[in-house]
Design a protein around this nucleic acid. Structure first.
Lengths: 219, 219
DNA sequence: TTTAATATTTAGAGTAGTCTAATTTTTAAA
DNA sequence: TTTAAAAATTAGACTACTCTAAATATTAAA
């Protein structure tokens, strides 16, 4: 079992690593957990010794398989508790997060299995986030239209809502394809158009609402 | 809000104080929490400063009203979570205690209120222990027959199941009366008779099954 | 009532997790 | 490619909680 502090670091590291794929920096964790960067360095070393992350001095950490598994179990608990609070206790989705931050650290496998059963093995929590199963496996995430996305978030294109030749050709011209990742830089209030950056590149495109309302994405 | 450690001390102090009425010693807490007596002294001072207990050097602590209220809230949470786990998650009563030791430290008033509602405001937990309400008030405890009691436990006589003159006279002769406390020293397997000690005294009596099955008690 | 046993407190120290200030390393700009 | 800015690390220290060992206070026995 890990300490509460270790669990919070693991979760933050996992989340940031999953969204960028790059080694996780001390500053990003410091910002995320509202903790001094010097303290983060210490914890990086400690987690490294436990083989929960691979730590390269001055280059940050990457979660190991062991670290990912641990993080996914915490995320699983967090999302199951949120589902419980909304579905069974009728709390609203915006007041459950803080409480789930505490509940996720309760250690008991059987408790979580039974809770999962009570809730009828939900695949997504009240915010639409996927709930890992007891082996840490995530369900395929729900696709939705890019036009429903928000600024600052990375998405992965999963499909199109319009199979016309002109649309598909246009996508090809823009460099968009299924599986491709993009980051929404800004959503223009006036016409709903989006400025997006493609993959790792610097290339920025502006997509009209007609386009974004025909692109399925997930996270 | 109190720290996890403070909460555990408060609970232990409250429990011991309630069962004896005497100031709570460092050794009793040290034994209870599996902690060194020197550490307990430190915490006694700390809780004293917070006015959760009154601390007299070398004489132990007594919980203040504030301390009792805090302890009762933790006990309330513990017993509601136990009820939840048994009633809703179908866990057995002997496996829920350890988990409730963790859950009782989750801080959220609304969570507990909603949990209470979900469980339909139970007055007793699966072990028969009374659940304080949100103001810390304990329900009158459930009476049961002394013959259902077990060795090592103290009981208080609350009533009789037989109003015959001979029975009442016999009770009087034995020195038993409503309100009187007794400790079950041993239950004889052969005939279900009980060896009990009366009040604070050394006096021991043997009560036949006919007697114990006609005495109502609570804890 | 003195003494021996037991309980309590004090003093000093260790661990986990945190901080600030100073130094070193990396990154990005000129 | 050198230099300035930003990020990361080290060193030293603090808090909460814990410990052991020694000193003191209380209780119970002789």
């Amino acid at each position: 079992m890990y300490t509460l502090t270790e669990e919070n670091y693991l979760k933050a590291i996992y989340r940031i690593f999953e969204s960028t794929g790059d080694p996780v920096s001390t500053t990003s964790i410091a910002g995320n957990l509202q903790i001094n960067a010097a303290s983060v360095t210490d914890m990086f070393k400690k987690l490294g010794q436990q083989k929960l992350v691979t730590y390269e001095k001055s280059r940050g950490v990457r979660p190991t398989e062991k670290g990912k598994k641990a993080a996914l179990q915490i995320i699983r608990k967090h999302r199951l508790w949120e589902t419980f609070m909304v579905d069974k206790l009728k709390l609203s989705w915006d007041e459950v997060h803080e409480i789930a931050e505490q509940l996720e650290h309760v250690h008991s496998e059987i408790l979580i299995e039974r809770l999962d059963h009570l809730l009828d093995y939900p695949k997504f929590d009240p915010h639409g986030d996927p709930i890992p199963d007891k082996n840490g496996k995530l369900p395929l995430s729900k696709s939705f239209l890019l036009s429903e996305g928000k600024g600052g978030q990375m998405y992965r294109i999963t499909g199109v809502g319009n199979n016309s030749d002109t649309f598909l050709k246009y996508l090809k011209k823009l460099g968009l394809a299924i599986g491709e990742r993009l980051v929404v830089k800004e959503v223009e209030e006036f016409d709903g158009s989006m400025r997006v950056a493609l993959g790792e590149s610097e290339t920025e495109l502006t997509l009209s609402r007609e386009v974004t309302a025909n692109l399925f994405v997930d996270i």
